[in-house]
Design a protein around this nucleic acid. Sequence first.
DNA 1: TTTAACAAATTTTTT
DNA 2: ATTTGTTAAA
Length: 692
Amino acid sequence: MQTHTVFPTLNPAQLEAVHHLTGPCLVLAGAGSGKTRVIVHKIARLLQAGYEPGQIAAITFTNKAAQEMRERAKELVGPKAAKHLVISTFHSLGVRILRAEGAKLGLKEKFSILDSDDVLSILKDAGASTDNALARRWQWTISAWKNQGLNSAQAEAAAEDDDDRVAARIMQRYEERLAAYQAVDFDDLIALPHKLLLRDEAVRAKWEATLRYVLVDEYQDTNAIQYELLKSIVGERALFTAVGDDDQSIYGWRGATIDNLKRLPQEYPLLKVIALEQNYRSTGNILRAANNVIGNNPKLFEKKLWSAFGDGEPVRVVECDGEEHEAERTVARIQALRGGAATASDSAQVELKDFAVLYRANHQARVFEKALRKANIAYKVSGGQSFFDRAEIKDLCAWLRLLVNPDDDPAFLRSVTTPKRGIGTQTLTALGEFASKWKTSLFEALFAQSLGTAISARAIGGLHEFGRCVNDLEYRARHTVGAEDAKVFLMGWLKDLDYEKHLLDGEDSEKLAASRWSNVLDFVDWIAKRCGGQIENDGGLSVEVERKSVLDVAQTISVIISLAERGDDQNVVTLSTLHAAKGLEWPHVMLSGVNEGLLPFRSEDDDMTEERLEEERRLMYVGITRARTTLSINMLRRRKRGRDTIQGVPSRFIAEMKLDENTAREDPRDKLKALRAAAALRAEKASKLPTD
DNA sequence: TTTAACAAATTTTTT
DNA sequence: ATTTGTTAAA
């Protein structure tokens, strides 16, 4: 086979992973080893081998990951094939199976899917409790059981204490209600298809034939029931590729189990195990620290990252006197690195988006936010689900932006089509051409005399009506002042738009539409609140604020949005939890609060099990391997706990990095590999490097 | 007993 | 920021 000429930019291990099509395959993809690249190339290889796009399934954990993978696939295999690939999350695959086969489980065709809030209120009802915290604990417990494949009877039998027994009884009532409502929860989306495939061999065989080849991303994050589902789908032929990294398994608390990795070689003796050990991301010093830390965990599979890049700068340990001091030093470091590169003409400019501050728990972000604001450095807090990212909020923001600035063409395009008002692509394309010919904005072009030459009279009517509507809204927004009036105005506007109906039309689930509508109402309140009356300032003081018009508020919102909309080119410092940072990378990474108690995390009355510690260690490993060129480890000599300050103890992970040992300790074979690869790298002049 | 005011604490997150 | 727990006053 001429295979090695087909994808010449892959390294040998990657090639092996891509070309092994005949049986089960496990790819141990170390951090930064080009994991997604392998998956996407393997998809291309499968197509080349005669698979239809619809027969190849790539399973991810998040919709975002699925979307990104489809994008990457599009680049390689073209939009036509990429469109038909089954790239979906475990849960959407579950929905797909249930929609097709649900009748066999007694589900009607249009069963509803309960979100976490729905489940919570059902549980409160079933348990005759109004206590949110308690209900959430039940929810948590029940979800954990379901993810282990237990039903209420089995859970009751396995219950260890009274809390468990109570939860099991509530679970039973919960199950009855779900059946009565014809509803399923998120856990059922995996559990029910699994149950069905197990029970009905004909159905199972059908899905095995439909999804002939299955690729699973982030395999280390699968839970017990997901593993079973996967096993059912692939059947005896076992044509699948699991891609994962046992060292990056950080979701044990959510039910993920690396037993799934252990079981794979046992249950599939033909399993081909391929380790991707070449890292295309970090310097030698960073990788050595990472390897040293993770070396303290027991190994499932032998795997050691190496890099063709040089040693780079040493990893720094920064000792701080407290949280504020840490934030200050972090800001200082950002400014120093940026300043330094700006004067060196030949080195690339260091940008804000090159920095990330990573921490264990969300609340740690606060101090950094404050310090960055003070220093006038733009930042974003990732992980926190942005309210403004929601489609319905973006819709409304587009309108507001248009009111503030009619020449905002993207806002124009979104508004004019939301809700649908009989102005389609044809009209808009013509309008766009007209506008660019005369170098005006779309909105301005609306009223041009000569527009009639480009667009039919009927379409112009619709456009003019839209334009009048915008002008009218702008006038009223300018003259509506104060919270109460603002709310009336906004609600009237939504009614004119018939936006609620638009949501109902656009969503096949009524529930989802309702939740979107409730977001919209929140948004209205949020805006109205800003139009006058009392608001809280930075110090937590309540002050009477100048009454502002809706347009003024819209103005400040559009500033926020235009910042947020820049999306990927958004040039800001990232603040993120370690969990949310997985899969991402930055040139300069700072790990915050690397102290005993915080990382590894340990709460007051909790004796840490070895397993827990190992997961914390993997978290540290994930943090270290996010860094490309520099890594700072921040340690607090003193830290706050409640009102008093306690002494900060350096995390054991700092010692485990063995930063004081110099490069002489390095395995000479690694050195050789690195040299060879470095030479190859230069020869190839590879400009685009794969990342995971 | 109920309410208001204040203090303290807070892991990690997706579907 | 949010939310839970505590304490004091009505």
